[in-house]
C-alpha cells in the first residue's frame, strides 16, 4: 500500500520541476494529434523506448552507481523470446513479454552473482564481455535464426492488439507511452523504497553501507534485475515494432552503451535524468544522421559530433545535463540568498 502512495509522491521536487513535467506529459499525450511528419513520430517512439531503457539502467547505473555496459543482452532476450514465441507457437505479445522478462531476469541473476564481485572498470568491462558472449551464441544458434535473425509474419487483421501489429504508428506510440508512465511511477516508488535508499548508500560508501546491515552484493543483484526487467520489456516491444530482429541489431555493444548514455548524459541517479538524456540524444542522433549523412553525404560526421558532445559532457559535468541544471539553480538560489 505504501508503495502505491510512494509511486505518486512527487512532493520532494520543486514546484517548477512539476510544472515542466506536467507540460511535457501533456505534450506527450496530445502529440499524435498534432501535425507531424512520420520521421518525427519515429523519433518520438525511439525517445520513449530509450527513456524506458535509460530508466531501467538508472536503477543499477545511477542509483547504485554500477556502470553496466551489457544491457543489450537482455534486450535481446526480450526481443527473441517474443519473436520466437510468435513465429513458432503463435503466442501473443502480452504472454511472451512477461515470459521474456522472466527469462531475462533469471539470466540476470545467474550473470549478476559472479559479476558483482567486480568493481569499477573491471565490472564495466566484464558486463560488456557477458553481453558479447550471449550475442555470439545467438549468432550461430539456428533455433533463433542465427545471424540472419527472425522475422515476425504480418497478421491478416490489423490492428491486432494481441500481437501488437498496427498500420499506424500512433498505436505503438500510445502503448509505449502507457509503459513509459507505468515505468515512471514504478521508479518513483523504487526511489522511495528501502532498496532505493540502500543502493544510494552503497554508491556513497560500500563499507558504511555494510555496517548499516546492507548486503551490498545482494542489493546490487536485485537492482540489476529491475534494470533488466525494463530493458527486456522494451526488447519485446521492439521485436513487434520492427518485425525483424537480428543479433547485430538488438544485442550490439553500441546499444548497450547507448542505454547507459541516456541516463549518464541526462543525469544518473535522478528520476528525470534518463528522460532528459533520451530527449537530447535520440533526436540529436537521428536528425544529425539524417542531415549530415543522407543529405550532405558526410556519413560519420554526425557520430563525430555526437562523440564530441559525449566527451565534452564527461569532461565538464560528469553529473550530466541534470547536474548542470541543478548547479545553475543552486547558484541562482545562492545569489538570492546573498541579495
Amino acid at each position: 500500500m505504501e508503495a502505491v502512495r510512494n509511486a505518486f509522491d512527487f512532493s520532494d521536487f520543486p514546484r517548477l520541476d512539476l510544472w515542466v513535467a506536467g507540460g511535457v506529459l501533456a505534450f506527450l499525450l496530445v502529440f499524435p494529434a498534432l501535425p507531424h511528419s512520420s520521421f518525427a513520430m519515429t523519433i518520438m517512439i525511439q525517445f520513449l523506448m530509450f527513456s524506458l531503457y535509460g530508466m531501467g539502467w538508472n536503477t543499477i547505473g545511477g542509483y547504485a552507481g554500477q556502470v553496466d555496459l551489457g544491457k543489450a543482452q537482455y534486450n535481446g532476450i526480450g526481443a527473441y523470446t517474443t519473436a520466437v514465441m510468435m513465429v513458432r507457437w503463435d503466442v501473443p505479445f502480452w504472454v511472451s513479454m512477461p515470459v521474456g522478462m522472466a527469462l531475462a531476469v533469471g539470466w540476470s541473476f545467474i550473470i549478476g552473482y559472479p559479476l558483482f564481485r567486480l568493481k569499477g572498470h573491471y565490472f564495466a568491462i566484464a558486463t560488456i564481455a557477458t553481453s558479447l558472449i550471449l550475442k555470439d551464441v545467438f549468432e550461430v544458434w539456428d533455433f533463433v535464426g542465427a545471424a540472419k535473425g527472425m522475422e515476425i509474419p504480418i497478421r491478416k487483421n490489423l490492428p491486432d492488439f494481441l500481437y501488437l501489429q498496427f498500420k499506424q504508428d500512433y498505436y505503438y506510440y500510445y502503448i509505449l507511452l502507457a509503459l513509459f508512465l507505468v515505468g515512471l511511477l514504478y521508479l518513483n516508488a523504487f526511489r522511495h523504497s528501502r532498496l532505493g535508499f540502500q543502493l544510494r548508500a552503497i554508491k556513497d560508501n560500500e563499507d558504511v553501507a555494510r555496517s548499516l546491515g546492507i548486503d551490498a552484493h545482494w542489493c546490487k543483484i536485485k537492482a540489476y534485475a529491475v534494470a533488466t526487467a525494463f530493458v527486456a520489456v522494451v526488447g519485446s516491444f521492439h521485436a513487434c515494432y520492427n518485425f525483424n530482429i537480428e543479433p547485430e541489431d538488438v544485442m550490439s555493444l553500441d546499444l548497450s552503451i547507448l542505454i547507459a548514455m541516456m541516463a549518464l548524459l541526462g543525469g544518473a541517479g535522478s528520476l528525470w535524468g534518463p528522460i532528459i538524456g533520451a530527449a537530447i540524444l535520440v533526436p540529436l542522433k537521428s536528425y544529425l544522421g539524417d542531415w549530415l549523412g543522407a543529405s550532405a553525404g558526410l556519413v560519420g560526421l554526425n557520430l563525430v559530433i555526437y562523440g564530441g558532445i559525449i566527451m565534452l559532457i564527461a569532461a565538464v559535468q560528469p553529473r550530466g545535463v541534470w547536474g548542470m541544471v541543478e548547479a545553475a539553480l543552486a547558484r541562482r538560489r545562492g545569489d538570492h540568498g546573498a541579495a
Binding site: V67, H121, A124, I257, A268, L303, V304, I310, A314, P318
Partner: peptide, 12 residues
C-alpha cells in the same frame, strides 16, 4: 563514469 564516457566519446 566520466572516464568511461569520455574515452567512449573519443572512440566514437
Amino acid at each position: 563514469v566520466a572516464q568511461l564516457l569520455g574515452t567512449f566519446g573519443l572512440m566514437l
